[in-house]
Amino acid sequence: MPELPDVEAFRQVLAAHTGDPITGVRVRDPGVLRDVGPRRLDRALRGHRFGTPRRHGKRLLAPAEGPVLTFHFGMTGSLSWHSHDDEPHPHDRVVLSLEDGELRYRDMRKLQGIRLMRDEAEAEESLSDLGPDAMEISRGDLDDLLARRRGRLKTVLTDQSALAGLGNLLADEICWHARVNPLRPARDLDEDDRAALHRAMRRVLRESVKAGRVPPRRSWLTGVRDRPDGTCPRHDVPLSRERMSGRTTVWCPRCQPC
């Protein structure tokens, strides 16, 4: 699933074409369009130029001299740059043609998709259901967030209305780096736990953004979590697992005790 680092990488792909004129929009599968049809999307964007894109959590906003294109990548979405001659992928759903190539929105499962907003104000309003961006949240705001929320820490970290950008992999990774158990009640964390969590969040996100994804490093939880016999990179202790909201939560019982 694309998480904050993946979407930041998609933003950088789009940012490389700031100022380029859009020569056309080809919708290969309208099933990814939300509240807009193929013809209206093409009319709204053709001849316009992309402005500076921005990201909030897992969403990407692409202003185009008035209208704003918003991308929600769901479970399997991506945005990539191609030459006009590149063979299309079966899951390329929308192609934004520019003079020297194409931006392709690819999505296998089509759980979310693309929306067209009239202007920046409407685009900003579309983010009103999201909490603060995980890359930007301050230590104090994170403390306040955790103190206000009921439920387990992992649930709070992955609730996009509370904190935007973290998914399953990032939440587990951050908790492991902070040595905090993801199943603990969020409001029960003490000051040291909250400080460690904020430091770990900044470090993990910084390194993941550099890699363009949550990197599968052997020194990180991501490098071992999918192995049936995976052990903690710190202690070589077998990892613990539990299903939460349909996703597997992984932690080390030694360095992340309950």
Rank of each mutant, 00 (worst) to 15 (best):
D159R: 13
R194V: 10
M201D: 06
H177W: 13
V224G: 09
V204S: 12
R203K: 14
L197E: 00
T222G: 02
R179S: 12
T158H: 11
G212N: 11
W220Y: 13
A195E: 15
W220T: 05
L146F: 13
G165S: 02
A178R: 03
R202V: 14
P216C: 00
S161C: 02
L163A: 06
D226H: 15
L157K: 06
L221A: 09
I174W: 00
E173P: 06
L142Y: 03
K210H: 13
A147I: 07
W176Q: 10
R217F: 04
T222M: 12
P185C: 01
A171S: 07
R217W: 10
R139Q: 14
R149W: 07
E191D: 14
R148L: 12
R213S: 10
E191V: 15
N168L: 05
R225H: 11
A171M: 03
V156A: 05
A211H: 08
L153V: 01
E173L: 04
H198S: 07
R187Y: 09
H177E: 11
G151H: 04
D159K: 09
I174C: 00
R184L: 10
D190A: 09
R150L: 03
L183S: 01
L189T: 01
R218H: 05
V214L: 12
S219H: 08
A162P: 04
L153Y: 06
A200C: 10
M201G: 08
R199H: 10
R184Y: 07
P228F: 10
A164P: 00
E207L: 13
W220G: 07
W220I: 04
R206I: 06
A164S: 08
E191K: 15
R187P: 08
P182T: 01
D143K: 12
R149C: 13
G167C: 02
A195N: 12
G167N: 03
P215C: 00
R217Q: 09
P185K: 00
G223A: 08
V204H: 13
R225A: 14
D192T: 15
S208Y: 05
L146M: 14
R187W: 10
D188L: 12
G212A: 07
R187A: 15
N168C: 02
R150G: 13
A211R: 03
D141A: 11
R184N: 03
A147G: 14
R149T: 15
D172P: 04
L163M: 04
D159M: 09
W176K: 05
R184F: 06
K210S: 14
P216K: 00
R152C: 04
R227W: 13
H198E: 10
R203H: 11
R203L: 15
A178F: 02
V214N: 05
P228W: 07
P215W: 00
L189I: 09
R148W: 11
L170G: 02
M201K: 13
M201S: 07
A195C: 14
K154F: 15
L153K: 01
R150N: 15
L166M: 08
P185Q: 03
G223D: 13
H198V: 06
T222D: 14
R184G: 04
